[in-house]
């Protein structure tokens, strides 16, 4: 039995878990290709027009897998933490896919909803496993094994290995050399880790000799504690992690700049990005850059903003070190 896992949305957070789980049960797992122009084009053509870029990309991945597999893995991810939701589009994803794309193979669209409690965890796991086997013992041990893989993956990211396109980079993105700039790259993981969708922002920053800090590299529990101090509870899970990261960074200040990558039309970011930007500006003087992405493939706009941002940081640093500001020969009289 072939199960296709599309390389989009929850993929970047959870795929080692799902892949190991189904492989341990004896199914063959097929991943869609990393996002490319064709996938983006197909996705954009076959998605409701008001969807955000990552949702369009996911549709492209499903089309990529459509003719290769027996089942496509599109779980209905409602909630993974108590009292929180992920995103309204995640909740309705199986329907969106079903009515937008023709000839979709049967979907594994089990509901993941721990909004009330986690008590139903094992029932959910069995439901996922029963697509392959009815043997609950087998499912138990497959889940235990998958969980191990998943924890390793999380640990590797925490150690600085970026999962670009879901594949862990060989080296940590922390160079460790003194004097290098570190920039926090914030945004929804499925946008940042998608090399094509994010316009190669990670590679571009690396080429500009920047160390990259991602929210996933910080202790999630601590980030959640930070966002719990907000006046009103943040009930979007991605938003909670990002907000916590911003609060942590604004307090600790051991960072040279923050770049927030958002997709055009993201409902959660319309609040969260705004809150984060205000918080960064009112509680720190850390440079902040917002990059909004959509279906563009012309990269000049992103390059200009990134280059100018790095220039600005370099310039500021020189100034702080009481060295001459940019080009003393120009500015000094």
């Amino acid at each position: 039995m072939k199960i296709g896992i599309p390389r989009g949305l929850w993929f970047y957070d959870y795929y080692p878990l799902w892949k190991a789980f189904y492989e341990a049960l004896g199914a063959e797992v097929i991943l869609s290709s990393p996002t490319n122009k064709h996938i983006l084009d197909q996705g954009a053509k076959n998605t409701v027009d008001e969807a955000c870029l990552p949702v369009k990309i996911l549709h492209g991945h499903i089309i990529d897998l459509r003719d290769k597999v027996d089942y496509i893995f599109v779980p209905r991810m409602m909630s993974v933490y108590k009292g929180e939701y992920i995103c309204p589009k995640f909740c309705g994803l199986p329907e969106m896919v079903k009515y937008s794309i023709k000839n979709v193979p049967p979907m594994i669209d089990t509901v993941i909803n721990f909004n009330k409690s986690r008590k139903s965890l094992m029932t959910t796991i069995y439901e996922f496993g029963e697509y392959v086997t009815k043997d609950r013992k087998k499912i138990d041990s497959a889940y235990a094994e998958a969980l191990k893989k998943y924890k390793q993956y999380k640990q590797s990211i925490a150690e600085g290995r970026i999962p670009l396109n879901g594949e862990l980079m060989k080296e940590s993105c922390f160079n460790g050399k003194r004097g290098r700039k570190t920039i926090a790259l914030m945004g929804h993981s499925y946008l940042i880790y998608d090399n094509f969708g994010s316009m190669e922002i990670i590679n571009k920053l690396k080429a500009l000799n920047v160390d990259i800090l991602l929210p996933e590299m910080l202790d999630n529990g601590r980030l959640r504690d930070y966002s719990d101090t907000l006046e009103k509870r943040m009930f979007w899970s991605y938003g909670r992690r990002l907000m916590g990261t911003a609060m942590y960074l604004a307090e600790n200040k051991d960072i040279d700049g923050v770049i927030y990558v958002s997709s055009f039309g993201c409902g959660i970011d319309s609040i969260v990005e705004e809150l984060i930007e205000r918080r960064m500006r009112s509680e720190s003087d850390i440079p902040f850059l917002l990059i909004t992405l959509d279906e563009h493939t012309g990269e000049a706009g992103v390059n200009t903003r990134l280059e100018a941002f790095i220039d600005m940081i370099d310039w500021r640093r020189k100034n702080e070190g009481n060295l001459s500001p940019y080009g003393k020969s120009i500015c000094g009289n």
């Binding site: 055009f264 917002l290 200009t304």
Partner: peptide, 13 residues
């Protein structure tokens, strides 16, 4: 500020 760029913004998409 003080002769250096301290912040900027460009139009979005």
């Amino acid at each position: 500020r003080d002769g250096i760029i301290s912040d900027f913004a460009m139009n979005t998409v």
